[in-house]
């Protein structure tokens, strides 16, 4: 007889493929996500680029400074969509089917998480292209672009993991959406619009220094503006994001175990 446990990698692959197919068959959900993140890049650049003349920017190009914000905020649509996909699976009973297969619970949550991450990486790629079109110069060169995309990949996994975990706890679209509000403090209580030295309020300085997104911004900005002369912020960025991934993906896998068996 054919029944046997599939292996973890092939299960994850099969689950991811299914999630990608599902996303592609709903273009009305992902196309607006792509559009909105590019829109942010345009308005930030148009509205705020003047402040790059302040001495603290040391002549850096504001476009390179704000590009990471555009990429990180794209996650709310791209990677955040993973949570919405999960709510859909819970609603139509498909998630129970998945839980009834011998696949590991981690493989089950990794499908939508990886698909969400890929969506974010594609968004980031497009944002960078638009950036070049607006006159972006990357100090780190082609390798710099790759590093930015790798950081994006990590951020995508972390954020999608979080949104899947929240969806599994909340079990309905509204609460899952509410869960993504954590995103706002994450992105705005940081060095979002100006460098750390220019932040005035002491409380915001504290918030920014404990916010993992700050380290992500710093790593990306280092690559984009200074290249690889100082690698510590880049390494730190990767470490913080790796830690964040470990936490949120574990959270989602544990939530999957409890999703149906809660009472």
């Amino acid at each position: 007889m054919n029944k046997q446990q599939g292996n973890f990698f092939s299960d994850t692959l099969v689950m991811t493929k299914r999630s990608i197919v599902t996303i592609l068959r709903n273009p009305l959900i992902f196309i607006p996500n792509l559009a909105i993140s590019m829109f942010f890049l345009f308005v930030y650049e148009a509205g705020l680029s003047g402040i790059a003349n302040l001495p603290a920017f040391e002549g850096a190009n504001y476009l390179a400074f704000i590009l990471p914000v555009s990429i990180v905020s794209a996650a709310i649509g791209g990677a955040g969509g993973a949570g919405q996909a999960l709510v859909k699976d819970l609603d139509n009973g498909f998630f129970s089917r998945l839980l009834l297969t011998p696949s590991s619970r981690l493989a089950i949550v990794l499908g939508p998480i990886i698909a969400g991450m890929l969506q974010l990486v594609i968004q980031a790629g497009l944002i960078i292209c638009v950036g070049f079109f607006l006159g972006l110069e990357v100090a780190g060169g082609a390798l710099g672009v790759v590093v930015v995309l790798l950081l994006t990949l990590g951020w995508g996994l972390a954020f999608a993991g979080y949104s899947v975990g929240v969806a599994l706890r909340a079990k309905n679209a509204q609460s899952a959406q509410a869960g993504t509000f954590i995103f706002f403090p994450l992105i705005f209580l940081s060095t979002t619009f100006v460098p750390y030295e220019l932040i005035d309020a002491a409380w915001l300085k504290v918030a920014a220094s404990i916010n993992p997104v700050t380290y992500l911004f710093e790593a990306m900005r280092t690559v984009l503006i200074d290249g690889f002369t100082d690698t510590w912020p880049i390494v730190l960025g990767f470490l913080v994001i790796a830690g964040l991934c470990a936490i949120t993906i574990t959270f989602s896998a544990v939530s999957a175990k409890k999703a149906v068996s809660t009472d």
């Binding site: 054919n2 029944k3 046997q4 446990q5 599939g6 092939s10 299960d11 099969v14 299914r18 197919v21 599902t22 068959r25 709903n26 699976d89 139509n92 009973g93 498909f94 998630f95 129970s96 089917r97 998945l98 009834l100 297969t101 011998p102 696949s103």
Partner: peptide, 24 residues
């Protein structure tokens, strides 16, 4: 189960192949 568990975005054949892959 009493409520069917089907992903509406997949075709009948795809769902069965998907299920079979997960069972090795």
């Amino acid at each position: 189960l009493q409520e069917t568990g089907i992903d509406p975005d997949l075709k009948g054949r795809e769902l069965l192949e998907f299920q079979a892959r997960l069972f090795g």
